[in-house]
Nucleic acid binder design. Sequence first.
DNA 1: GCAAGGTC
Length: 858
Amino acid sequence: MPPPKVLMVAEKPSIALAIASVLSHGQMFTRRGSTEVHEFEGMFRDSPAHFKVTSVIGHVFSLDFPAKYQDWSATDPFDLFQAQVVKNESNPKAHICRHLNQEARGCRYLVLWLDCDREGENICFEVLESSGFNIRDAYRARFSSVTEKDVLKALDNLVKPNRAESLAVDARQEIDLKVGVAFTRFQTSFFQGKYGNLDSRVISYGPCQTPTLGFCVQRYLQMNTFKPEKFWSLHPYIFHNGYEIQLEWQRGKLFDINVAMMFQKLVAQDGVLKVTEMSEKQETKARPVGLNTVNLLKVASSALGFGPQMAMQLAERLYTQGYISYPRTESTAYPPSFDFRGALSAQANNPTWGNYVQGLLTNGYHKPRSGTDVGDHPPITPMRSAAEDTLGNDAWKLYQYICQHFIGTVCPDCKYLRRKVEFSIGGESFHCTGHNVITKGFTAIMPWLAVSDKNLPSFIKGQKIEVSKMELYEGSTAPPDYLTESDLISLMENNGIGTDASIPVHINNICERNYVQVQAGRKLVPTTLGITLVRGYQTIDPDLCLPDIRSFIEQQITLIAKGQIDHHYVVQHVIQQFMQKFSYFVKKIEDMDALFEAQFSTLTESGRILSKCGKCLRYMKYISAQPPRLYCGTCEEVYDLPQKGIIKLYKELCCPLDNFELLLCSMPGPEGKSYPLCPYCYSNPPFEGIEALINTAKTGTSGKMGKGAGMPCTLCPHPSCPNSLVSQGVCACPECSGTLVLDPVSAPKWRLFCNMCNCLVFLPQGAHRISTTRERCSECDSSIIEVDFNKKTTPLEDGSTLHRGCILCDELLHSLIEMKHGRGFRSSRGRGRGRKVGYRGRGRGGKMMDPKMSFRDF
DNA sequence: GCAAGGTC
């Protein structure tokens, strides 16, 4: 009988590889799949076994609402709280689910090597579900590093997956989804399009991102309401043994000038300082503990100028290239088995700190400070040596810091002598201090943390010294500055907002949504939108933007993780509370709106005059802020426009159906297409069934029209309007089910573009005029086009300029056209997708043909 | 178009 098969699943491919390498002593067979599978023979629970080690790539599933809740306009956000939720595959293209199911076939046991935290426990159950394993045959390996010792120990001490912890994550997902989506949809819909200068594509809410924004706005409000106060302080100066020294007053600063002047008088009456006390104390500046993600992000932002998102991208790349250890970790304690000698040796040839490292290797390095072990991954350390030119400037800076920090952790502490001399005059005490470094320790490697020497002349106790100058210093208290990114990361960490991996995402979110801007010195300056939102929450329900909202959720799901309360009960309880908050927020939204009204301009006062309304025949205003729209002040109607592209008036032409003036939308760039549209038809398509077509064009799915999708003239089936698809369409698109239409403003670089995809076809360049005709090709039913060539460059033999023909069947025209795609050129040849393409698009039954054949010569 | 959490 063959030995039983054991399937092992890790959280990411690199861990699968590491575990397999340890267990197989490097003797494994690796094959590719959705993720790599490593196979080898070994021992499992004292019997021979065949191992297969593979991995997922993070979470297998993510939570969402079923399809019927996806349409914003057809769903009341309040209903989302009680809606069902479904688990979809996180990354359907990776086919992780199928992969696990296939690999599980014929396996007797499952061993789960996922990170040892709640999320890891949750992924265990995702793997169980995907693979179809019975939990009876599944085991959990608990490990905190992938060293041989740890891996073998974990395999000898297998436990069962922890369902309670996994359920806590399920609960968190459901609560975050429902709360976030309900509030986001409600406030987006409420404010969208209401104000002219408000960028309101999405006005999001989330239990992590909103408190994050709250921190930035809170600081802004503190700055704004700050009242400076004057203060006074006595600054005596002395000349002693060639040093000029300013002494510090024991009382620091006083906020009453009369009191300060009284002391000044007392001191002046005495006139002579007496040395009362001299002391020396050895101080220690401790070496750093191991580097975790949050601290790396803080240094990257404050010292290197990299935002968290950027820093993580750089770190990720250094990690995948093998230069540093895994960059997402909370722990600052090194595992007991950590190979310091090995890691240090890799740095021994570095031109900057190599000599110092060699010293540590020969004279002995220090045991690092203990730090904290959260049981996830070891601190971030360099894994191998690197050179600046192979890494590139930014990655090198980050790598350099990681090396310096690592070396710093095994260096001696910095020690210095602190000298203090105390004086008395007129009954008041003053002092001065000096520093003398004894041992540089880790500051030799991290020079920016060095203690600078400050020498003091020698004094004798009881000595009397003249005051050379007595200054009554007048100062003023200063407001705090904007939060730096580094401050924000600390606040998030201390308040339990986000995780090492998600903190950069939240910060990025509030920047991208235009709630804050990163300014010089990586300071976070809230925008009017960000400030108004937070002030709105503060007036309606301050909880909504306080970090407690996250701690409340965390605390509730911890009850599930501990197995104390049923998970459905907790979810229902928390959801009930948020439903109440939501109802109250909806009821009071006018209070927030009042703040918006004060900050943003109404539609009437914003925008510029653009085109005529077909109903009242007056001019409408074009509002360019997202989402772009037209506003008719007379009819008080808003007409949505395409989200992207530059909008202009189109030759003062009018739509024959509704009399609205036509607009031209041009996409940027040399290959950007231009198309006309009627502002009324765009949002209110006049022909039945057109929505499905529009949605196919915009999103590739059918259904109701979503935001940002509309009917331009290039999709309009109007039979006689000169701008409609029927008039401007030339032939079927060879790439999709769309139609190639003439770009009416492309002269002299005449071209056709597809009304559905980004397919582009260049027509004879430099022609005077190219237009469609009502005639059709007898061969392929395409529109015959008329070309008026330039006199000088006409290809026609008799020097004439006018030519009519089909771009596919007319030899001359066909030889003059060239096919290109909007994004990246792909040859249409040999793609073998087996599409069935016929003539469609012009609304008339034509002879079926395969345009792919006609385009074969491109 | 929406959350937060994994990982790439």
